[in-house]
Amino acid sequence: MILKGKVWKFGDNIDTDIIIPAQYLAHTDPRVLSQHCMEPLAPDFAKKVKSGDIIVSGTNFGCGSSREHAPLAITGLGIPLIIAKTFARIFYRNAFNKGLALLEADISDLVEDGDEIEADISQGIIHCKGKEIHAKPIPPFMEELINEGGLINHLKKKLEG
């Protein structure tokens, strides 16, 4: 799958309290959660971001809590992909479980807010600023899980089988 979108750049250690502050965690609806995405750092982000835009970040994106509200707040805005140098491990699993694609690549210094980039999710290839960058490959086990439609579909099949 090839995704094209405009870049929103964030720094290192973007934690889950920034992605979705705890005061909103009694909500489970992604449409409500998404309105507060990144609020402590960028209060206008949810209003300005367009469906299809892509987040680019540095190291340890999604560190902190296990709240699945974090990937939901992001997908609720129509953001299909995050490219970061590294991801925190709970966020990494949660994103896959919630259908949010992640690519591990260090492109933060190459791009600016608003740049148009293109990413081939299945190949892990990113095109930006005339360069081709190869993301760290997705572990084969997780790729299988994605091909099965995610963990919940995998579970559904097990229960039906």
Binding site: S65, S66, E68, I90, N94, N97, K98, L151, I152
Partner: peptide, 27 residues
């Protein structure tokens, strides 16, 4: 496993414990 990142606390007892998201906990 616990749907809370501080589930790792129980390691003090010589157990393996770790935090995960809600969907993994459902599984």
């Amino acid at each position: 496993i616990g749907a809370d990142s501080h589930t790792c606390t129980y390691g003090a007892l010589g157990a393996f414990s770790t935090g995960m998201g809600s969907t993994d906990i459902t599984y």
